[in-house]
Computed example of a mutant assay.
Amino acid sequence: MDQTDPAAVARLRATAHPVRLRILSLLTAEAMSAAEVARALDLTHANASYHLRQLHDVGELVIESEEKVRGGVAKRYRYDATREVPDRSSGIDDRISYARATAVEVERRLHDAARGAASSSDLEAWVPVETWHRALDLLHQASHLLHAAARPAGTPGTVHVSATTTAFTMTGGLDGEDVRWTPTEEAPR
Rank of each mutant, 00 (worst) to 15 (best):
T171Q: 13
L136D: 03
E186R: 13
L12C: 11
V161R: 15
P18H: 07
Q141Y: 09
E186H: 10
R108P: 08
I96R: 01
H147Q: 11
G59C: 05
D122Y: 10
A163L: 12
A14W: 00
H133T: 06
A149F: 06
A81S: 12
I92G: 02
D87V: 07
T184S: 15
L52E: 05
S65I: 00
A40D: 01
R70W: 04
G157Y: 10
A167V: 14
H56M: 04
S162K: 04
A16L: 09
T166H: 15
P6W: 03
T44S: 06
L41Q: 02
T165L: 11
A153P: 12
H160D: 10
K68S: 01
L27D: 04
S25D: 05
T44I: 01
S89A: 12
V58N: 02
Y79P: 01
A163W: 14
A29D: 00
S33I: 08
H17F: 02
Q54M: 10
Y50P: 00
L21F: 07
S89R: 14
S143W: 04
Q54Y: 07
A153N: 09
R20L: 07
H144K: 11
R22E: 04
E107Q: 12
L26V: 00
V161G: 10
R100K: 06
M32F: 00
R134Q: 15
D137F: 13
D57S: 11
A163N: 08
R39D: 06
S121F: 15
V179E: 06
V179D: 09
V161T: 14
K75R: 15
A163D: 10
L21D: 00
R189Q: 09
I92A: 15
R76A: 07
F168R: 15
A117W: 05
A103M: 12
A34E: 01
A48P: 01
V19Q: 10
H133F: 05
L41G: 04
G71C: 03
R134W: 04
A117P: 04
R115Y: 08
A187Y: 03
L146Y: 13
R20S: 02
G176P: 03
T169I: 10
E64Y: 02
M32A: 04
H111Q: 11
A118R: 00
M1C: 10
T164V: 15
R11T: 03
H140C: 08
G59V: 00
E130V: 14
S25H: 05
D94P: 03
S90D: 04
H17Q: 11
D175L: 08
E105L: 12
L61D: 00
V58E: 05
A117V: 11
G71L: 06
D5Q: 09
G59P: 07
V73L: 14
T165N: 12
G91E: 09
A46N: 13
W181R: 09
V106G: 06
A40H: 01
E66F: 09
A7E: 12
S25G: 12
V73P: 03
T102R: 13
H140M: 05
R134G: 09
T4L: 06
H17W: 02
T44F: 02
S65H: 08
A16C: 05
T102N: 12
D137N: 15
R70K: 02
A150C: 10
K68A: 02
E60R: 03
Y50Q: 15
D5G: 04
I63G: 07
